[in-house]
Amino acid sequence: MTPVSLPLASFLGDIGLHHFLAVGAVLFCAGLVTVLARRSAVGILIGLELILNAANLNLVAFDRFGPAPLRGTVFAIFVLAVAAAEAAVALAIILNVFDSRDEIDVDEITSLKG
């Protein structure tokens, strides 16, 4: 059966760049909410990873739909690498903080309070 030519059907059926970008946006905002809403430092890290993933998705989507081949993917790979490194270091910091304060609640760690 052929999909009916309705805007919704078109929206649902014809997957285009916008769709992927929209997914990326949703993931981004989800990650953002995680970062903002979580009190645990690890939780924030989780949110951060979501954000990075969303950015990566955008990159790859453009890679596919855009004119230049591979560029987006290369960029995404680099992002991946950096994210890994950053996650490692971040966890190291978290563990460090946990060692000294016995707490990783970001609301408690307010040494930078102005």
Binding site: L36, I44, V106, D107, T110, S111, G114
Partner: peptide, 17 residues
């Protein structure tokens, strides 16, 4: 206003967002 400088990262982030 100084509560802006709460030292809470999340607040800063939220504002930026």
């Amino acid at each position: 206003l100084s509560r802006v400088q709460s030292g809470r990262i999340r607040t800063y982030l939220a504002l930026g967002v």
